[in-house]
Nucleic acid binder design. Structure first.
Length: 819
RNA sequence: GCCGAAGUGGCGGAACUGGCAGACGCGGCGGACUCAAAAUCCGCAGGGGUUCAGAGCCCCGUGAGGGUUCGAUUCCCUCCUUCGGCACCA
């Protein structure tokens, strides 16, 4: 018998598939389309790791399965090649990023091919290729033309290690998302994309996509919509001048309960309203607040400190005079930087009021009358002490009060968002240039479309700078140009685009990757998109996944595509942890390299193990013993099935029907598991199926020569082919087929009926007491008779009164005793 | 604090719509093969009790407590723990 030579087999079939152009996606075929996409890799120097496998292998299984089911499958791959690590590595080694990236891509390509992934390689893309980034630039201009890109001088987060400005989404816990260095504020001129004008659309359409709730809730959170009102309080400064102080509130129904006002320390009014006798204390407080912020911005200590300014403000609704405080629990960048204090109905205000002995005035009550308050009552209720609004319910009061304020010109309804515009400028070399020319006369002018792409110069010192200036600024050949409008000497924009700009549209390019006239043909994109299934890590929840949705919405509004949401269904794969249950990292020395695993066990074992390791969307630890078990499984079916290879003996036994029944059962079960992405239990099913086949062939050596057994084996091989494509292809041919198993049709159950017996569970008081094998379809009376004949049942029933009988046909009989 | 996910043997994890808890795999134990070991193959195995022993039989058991139900890992309530996210958001 032939030995299972996995390295030979995988090499042989990978070559065969490539030579015969398997897996090419056909534009506009008659078959139904299925677009399955994995988040494309960043080609780092360390190559592919097992984490990639957790995503790419299951995706490939689905792609192969869908092909067998008759779909026209698009399963593409490419490289998210612009970005800091390649550049940093390049700086370290003195090699241009372009070369570094090319080398890394070569490694990735080799490793991806080794995994036997069924990509359509003819559609491979690379975001750092001018043929690609030409269109990244083109989209920048599209956004610019649609009024969605603007330039602003502002103070934003800067990573001192990466030496670039970051978008808000890319600052995590006050640290750079890439390198973990604490960020600082830096004032620079930046380009912004107006994602804020899509906040509502991005929020609303979350309801129309099949994504994990976790990701949706993170996006909702990030967009952070809150409806409320802006109320104009009037502050009176020490010289008697009046100043307007708008405050933002979501609980305008509590407005009659305002007993103080708090300004953020940075609020410009602070200096104006502070009275002479308070000025010293206030200045000290501001200084302390400043220092505190720098020292521990992340402190969980939430003491409500504050200080009185000495001045008062008028509540425009009831004319009451309330003291103005300064407090650092008020954030200047959110809302108006000023808050009305309603201690009776807000937890923080309550604490603040207690601390500063400010009166607490109840205006909301659950029952509609004043009650004793020991803590803030933050629920909705019925208004009390609220003038003509008393007696209204909170929700109604909010509407009435807002209309009243609008009428009087003292306030209005307003919607606030947490999300801010997306800063696109990066002060780094290795990215897509921003296609803008700064003309002394015409200002920022987009580069004419026919002149795109603005090429990234090769010969340049790409070391990043602390100055906030891009390395490109030091290349006169790049910088100096003429204005596209007037021809006057002008300077190019030297910042490059955030790498996320490149990845915000790559899934569209796969539909038409070689188009040099436009980013994609509308027809092709409308044929292939939206993506039916997108698989990738959850870490991109509010970065890539939000930006891509934004681009897609913009393209829809621009009439370039016929759909608003890019990814119909999203799945997040779990992480693969080291054998020590820790995140894999070089420093911990617990990194598993796929190359080594393949050398030892072959690609099919790696694939099967990654599928078997645990539920697809949860983290799982790598186990050397675990992979051994899976390898053993593959060897076991190889050994059994290979027996049939050269034989054309055909025998016939009575037990054949049972084999067909079992085969049918597994077809149904495995298909279901495949459809619901339960790869771990799918592998278990194959193991059980094999255990059955082994068992019956141990009982009777000749059973393997029956038609039913051979059919079961062939069905097994076909169905496991998406998971372990090489060994199944080899066995399929050994079993006498000349066409690829991957071109065969996914097996359907033949509808062979199970034996007409079934196990019925007999319970007494809901406890299992006996199990009987009976003919199917027996009536309650018949089963009852059998049940009461059982000695096991009798023991529990004897001498007791029978209450009722629960009967589930062909399944269970429960005898309930009277108490 | 808020939002989300999850708690099942020694371990990873199964269980359809409320109906046999622990599939499958790992590790463990016993046996076969072998001079021996490895590999391979066959078998056992939730915990406890009863029993000389085995079969058998009984009790307990899905984070804790309560509820609904003939019957709950599954549904409801309260709580605890772990992980992930957001966080003075007014």
């Amino acid at each position: 018998m032939e030995k299972y030579d996995f390295l030979f087999i995988q090499k042989k079939w990978q070559k065969y598939w490539e030579e015969h152009n398997f897996y090419r996606a056909e534009d506009f075929s008659d078959k139904p389309k299925y677009y399955i996409l994995v988040m494309f890799p960043y080609p780092s120097g360390s190559g592919l790791h097992v984490g990639h496998c957790r995503n790419y292998i299951p995706a490939d299984v689905i792609a192969r399965y869908k092909r067998m089911k008759g779909f026209n499958v698009l399963h593409p791959i490419g490289y998210d090649a612009f970005g800091l690590p390649a550049e940093n590595y390049a700086i370290q080694k003195g090699i241009p990023p372009k070369i570094v990236t090319q080398n890394n891509i070569k490694t990735f390509r080799r490793q991806l091919r080794m995994l036997g992934l069924s990509y359509d390689w003819s559609r491979e893309i690379n975001t750092s290729d001018p043929e690609y980034y030409k269109w990244t630039e083109w989209f920048f201009e599209l956004l610019y033309k649609r009024g969605l890109a603007h330039e602003n001088v502002s103070s934003e987060w800067w990573c001192p290690h990466c030496k670039t400005i970051l978008a808000n989404e890319q600052v995590i816990d006050g640290k750079c998302w890439r390198c973990g260095t604490p960020v600082v504020k830096k004032e620079l001129k930046e380009w912004f994309f107006k994602i804020t004008s899509y906040a509502d659309k991005l929020l609303d359409d979350l309801n129309n996509i099949d994504w994990p709730e976790r990701i949706k809730s993170m996006q909702r959170n990030w967009i952070g919509k809150s409806k409320g009102a802006e109320v104009n309080f009037v502050a009176v400064d020490p010289s008697g001048n009046e100043h307007n102080v708008p405050v933002f509130t979501t609980r305008v129904d509590t407005i009659f309960g305002v007993t103080f006002l708090v300004l953020a320390p940075e609020h410009p009014l602070v200096k104006k309203v502070t009275t002479r006798e308070n000025i010293e204390k206030v200045e000290k407080y501001l200084e302390d607040a400043q220092r505190k912020r720098e020292i521990d911005r992340l402190s969980t200590e939430k003491e409500k400190t504050g200080i009185f300014t000495g001045s008062y403000a008028i509540n425009p609704l009831n004319g009451e005079k309330v003291p103005i405080y300064i407090g650092d629990y008020v954030v200047y960048s959110y809302g108006t930087g000023a808050v009305m204090g309603v201690p009776a109905h807000d937890l923080r205000d309550f604490v603040f009021a207690k601390k500063h002995s400010i009166p607490i005035k109840q205006v909301i009550s659950p029952a509609g009358k004043e009650t004793e308050l020991n803590e803030a009552y933050t629920e909705d209720g019925i208004l009390v002490n609220s003038g003509k609004f008393s007696g209204l319910k909170s929700a109604e009061a909010r509407e009435k009060i807002v209309s009243y304020m609008e009428e009087k010109g003292i306030g209005n309804s307003i919607v606030r968002y947490h999300i801010r515009d997306w800063i696109i400028s990066r002060q780094r070399y290795w990215g897509a240039p921003i296609p803008i020319v700064h003309c002394p006369v015409h200002g920022a002018v987009p580069v004419p479309e026919e002149d795109l792409p603005v090429l990234l110069p090769d010969e340049v010192d790409f070391t990043p700078r602390d100055s906030g200036e891009s390395p490109l600024a030091n290349d006169p050949d790049f910088v100096n140009t003429t204005c596209p409008v007037c021809g006057k000497p002008s300077e190019r924009e030297t910042d490059t685009q955030d790498g996320f700009a490149c990845s915000s549209w790559y899934f569209l390019r796969y539909a038409d990757p070689h188009n040099d006239k436009e980013p994609f043909s509308r027809d092709k994109v409308n044929y292939w998109l939206p993506v039916d299934l997108y698989i990738g890590g959850a870490e991109h929840a509010v970065m890539h996944l939000l930006y891509s949705r934004f681009y897609t919405h913009v393209l829809y509004d621009a009439g370039l595509i016929g759909f608003k949401e890019p990814f119909k269904k999203l799945l997040n794969q779990g992480m693969i942890l080291g054998p020590d249950h820790q995140k894999m990292s070089k420093s911990k020395g617990n990194v598993i390299n796929p190359d080594d695993v393949i050398k030892k066990y072959g690609t099919d074992t790696l694939r099967a193990y990654v599928l078997f390791i645990g539920p697809f969307d949860t983290d799982a630890a790598w186990s050397t013993e675990g992979i051994n078990g899976v390898h053993r499984f593959i060897n076991r079916f190889w050994n059994l099935f290979a027996n049939l290879a050269d034989s054309n003996k055909v025998l016939s036994f009575d037990s054949e029907k049972e084999i067909s029944v079992v085969t049918d059962k597994w077809i149904r079960k495995i298909t279901k598991q495949m459809e619901s992405f339960k790869f771990n239990t799918m592998l278990s099913s194959f193991m059980e199926w094999l255990n059955y086949l082994v068992k019956i062939s141990n009982e009777n050596k000749d059973i393997i020569y029956t038609k039913a057994f051979r059919n079961s084996v062939e069905t097994f091989v076909q169905m496991i082919a998406p998971a372990v494509p090489h060994v199944s292809e080899e066995l399929w041919h050994m079993l006498g087929h000349s066409e690829s198993v991957h071109l065969s049709k996914w097996p359907e159950p033949k509808g062979i009926h199970k034996e007409d017996k079934t196990d019925i569970i007999i319970e007494v008081n809901g406890k299992l007491r006996d199990k009987v094998k009976v003919a199917k379809g027996l009536s309650e009376e018949e089963v009852k008779e059998i049940a009461f004949a059982s000695s096991k049942v009798e023991k529990f029933v004897e001498g007791k009164d029978i209450g009722r009988i629960i009967f589930v046909k062909d399944k269970l009989l429960n005898i309930v005793l009277k108490r």
